[in-house]
C-alpha cells in the first residue's frame, strides 16, 4: 500500500535530530532501520507528519565494548552485532543467539538494536534479551542525557520511556564475567515470523557451581517482554539441578500471559514458555561446561 504523505528531513548530528523532534513533537518519528516503522506507514496505521532520518549521524554508528559495558549506538545494525569479531565469546552467547534469529537475514542488514528496543513489540527479541541481561537505554533530550534501566524503559506495548522531543541514542549491556553464558530459544513458524514463544536466559555461576545471578525473560508472553523474577529467584544460590530448572520453567509457564492467535492457543504458548526456559537454561549451562 501507499503511505500517506509525509515530510522528510535528514539529520547529520544528534543535536540536529533532537531539534527536529522538539519542533514537531508527536508528529515526528525517528527513521533508523525503518523495518517496523515503514510497514506501519505503508498500511497507513502510522502517519507521521515528519520523518527524521538519523542514518547519516555518524556518531550513532558504533559498537563499543569497554569499561565493563557493551554500548550499541542507535544506528548499529543487527547484522553488525551478528558479525562482530568478539561475539563468539561465551559470555555474549545470549546476545549472539538473538542476533542470529531476529527477523530474517535481509531485515537484519537494516534493522537496529536500539530501534527494536524503542519499538517495544510484545514479540520482540532484543527487548527480551535486554531484560535478561539487565541492559539500559541512554535517552537524549533538550535537557541532556539520562540512562534508563530496561525494566523502566519498557512501559507497554509499543510504548517506552522516550518522551516527545527525545531520542534513544544507545543501548548499554553490562559485560558479563567469564563464568556467564546465555541462550535464546525461539519458536517461529518460519524465519521472519514473530516468535510463537521465546525465552532469553543468562546465568552466572559461582566458583562452587551454584548460581550467582540469573536473568530469565519471555517474549510474546504479554503486552511487553516479561522478566520472570520468580524463576530467577528460584535459581540464585542453588546448584542448577534438574528439579531447580524445572521449577524455574514452571514459574515461567505460570507467569506467561500470551494471547491466542494463529500461532497457537494460550495453553500451548504457556507450555512453550516453560519448555524454552528449561532448554535455554540447559544450553547455557552446557556452554559453561556445567551439568544440570
Amino acid at each position: 500500500m501507499i503511505p500517506a504523505a509525509f515530510e522528510y528531513v535528514r539529520a547529520h548530528s544528534i543535536d540536529e535530530a533532537i531539534a527536529h523532534l522538539q519542533q514537531h513533537g508527536g508528529d515526528a518519528r525517528v527513521l533508523a532501520g525503518g523495518q517496523s516503522l515503514i510497514p506501519a506507514m505503508r498500511f497507513r496505521l502510522a502517519r507521521p507528519a515528519v520523518l527524521v532520518d538519523i542514518n547519516s549521524v555518524r556518531d550513532l554508528s558504533y559498537l563499543r565494548a569497554s569499561d565493563g559495558v557493551l554500548e550499541i549506538g542507535a544506528t548499529s545494525r543487527d547484522s553488525d552485532v551478528e558479525r562482530a569479531g568478539w561475539i563468539g565469546d561465551r559470555r555474549w552467547s545470549l546476545i549472539h543467539d538473538v542476533s542470529r534469529v531476529v527477523a530474517d537475514p535481509v531485515v537484519r542488514q537494516m534493522g537496529t538494536v536500539v530501534g527494536s528496543l524503542c519499538h517495544n513489540d510484545p514479540s520482540g527479541d532484543w527487548t527480551t534479551a535486554a531484560l535478561a541481561s539487565r541492559a539500559e537505554v541512554v535517552v537524549r533530550g533538550k535537557a541532556g542525557a539520562r540512562t534508563v534501566p530496561i525494566d523502566e524503559f519498557l512501559v507497554d506495548s509499543f510504548t517506552t520511556a522516550v518522551g516527545e522531543g527525545e531520542m534513544a541514542v544507545a543501548a548499554r549491556f553490562p559485560k558479563p564475567d567469564d563464568r556467564t553464558a546465555g541462550s535464546y530459544q525461539k519458536i517461529e513458524r518460519k524465519v521472519g515470523d514473530f516468535a510463537t514463544a521465546a525465552a532469553a536466559v543468562q546465568i552466572s555461576l559461582n566458583a562452587d557451581g551454584t548460581v550467582r545471578a540469573a536473568g530469565i525473560a519471555l517474549s510474546a508472553a504479554g503486552p511487553c517482554a516479561l522478566r520472570v523474577d520468580e524463576a530467577e529467584r528460584l535459581l540464585v544460590g542453588r546448584e542448577p539441578r534438574d528439579e531447580t530448572i524445572r521449577a524455574a520453567a514452571d514459574a515461567a509457564s505460570r507467569r506467561s500471559a500470551p494471547q491466542a492467535d494463529l500461532r497457537g492457543g494460550v495453553d500451548y504458548k504457556k507450555h512453550l514458555a516453560g519448555v524454552l526456559v528449561a532448554r535455554g537454561l540447559r544450553q547455557a549451562l552446557a556452554r559453561l561446561g556445567a551439568r544440570a
Partner: peptide
C-alpha cells in the same frame, strides 16, 4: 488513538 507509531 495513540499506540506507539499508530496515531489517528
Amino acid at each position: 488513538v495513540a499506540v506507539g507509531p499508530v496515531r489517528g
